[in-house]
Computed example of a mutant assay.
Amino acid sequence: MAVTSSASKLIEANDWASLQHAYGPAEDTPAALVDLLNGAADARAMALGHLNHAVHHQNSLYTATAPSALYVAAILSDPRTDSLIRGGEGQWYPLRQALLDWLGSVAGEAGNEVEATLLRLGFLPEEYPALSEVRAIRPTLFEAASTFLHDSDPTIREAALAAVVPLLDAPELTHHRAVLAPMVRGILAASSNRAYRAIAIHGLDAWGEDVSSLIPPAEATAYGHGPWPAANFSSEPPF
């Protein structure tokens, strides 16, 4: 089965050699994106590794990040993302879950906290194309991820919720918070996945919701630092 024409066009629309990821020009990124669907199991795992370790290395954003995120959003509904992929911990989980987790991580690095940190340090967010480009596509990413908020697989439901929470920092998406807050509280905050619980608590807290009853005492300090690693802006942002 070939990659859908709309997804293929997203690859063809970019001059990847002019885009950057963590290791230089992103000329190798198109092949990795295609392998997410068309590759064998090992190739899919390597392609996912490329997203995590080159396109979004250590939670940084690059000019190749937004185009890659648009492609990932475009393929989320492809049946091949139902396939299982082996993680670094040796467990198998749905590729769709991994892609939703990746989109959520990308969105988390383009949210209000990152903007506030930049401004506090004297930087203007709009001066960094990689950041601005991700912020601009948040409605598209939300549309793709929210398709799975009522998925029959509870794992995918949780992953979709975890992905959309940071996306709701976008001004044009904040009106969804009131609708989704009960799901975030009732489903994500009760997840067995500690990272998902942290995302839920952090998001609800940012939305002005009372989260005191959701934070286990032993984990309160950890949750207080937020669900995704904070960007470390020592002198110049890593965009």
Rank of each mutant, 00 (worst) to 15 (best):
S8I: 00
K9V: 06
A13S: 11
A13G: 04
L19V: 04
L19G: 08
Q20R: 13
A22N: 05
G24H: 14
P25G: 08
A26W: 08
E27H: 06
A31H: 09
A32Y: 05
D35E: 13
D35A: 14
A43G: 09
R44V: 01
A45S: 12
G49Q: 10
H50A: 10
H57M: 08
N59Y: 15
L61N: 03
Y71C: 03
A73R: 04
A74N: 09
A74R: 06
R80T: 03
T81W: 01
E89N: 15
E89C: 08
P94S: 10
R96T: 05
D101W: 07
G104F: 02
V106K: 04
E113P: 01
E115D: 13
A116H: 13
A116W: 13
L119P: 00
F123T: 03
E127A: 14
Y128D: 08
Y128L: 14
P139C: 06
T140F: 10
F142H: 11
A145H: 02
A145G: 01
A145R: 01
S146M: 01
S146Y: 07
D151N: 14
D153Q: 12
T155N: 15
T155V: 15
I156F: 11
R157L: 06
E158I: 08
A159H: 09
P166L: 03
L167S: 07
L167C: 07
D169L: 01
D169Q: 01
P171L: 03
H175Y: 15
H176L: 08
R177P: 04
A178K: 11
L180I: 09
G186D: 15
A190Q: 13
S191W: 04
S192W: 12
N193A: 07
R197P: 00
A198R: 03
W207A: 02
W207M: 03
S212H: 12
A220Q: 14
A220C: 09
A220N: 10
T221A: 15
Y223I: 00
G224D: 03
G226E: 04
W228R: 11
N232Y: 11
S234R: 12
S235N: 12
P237I: 02
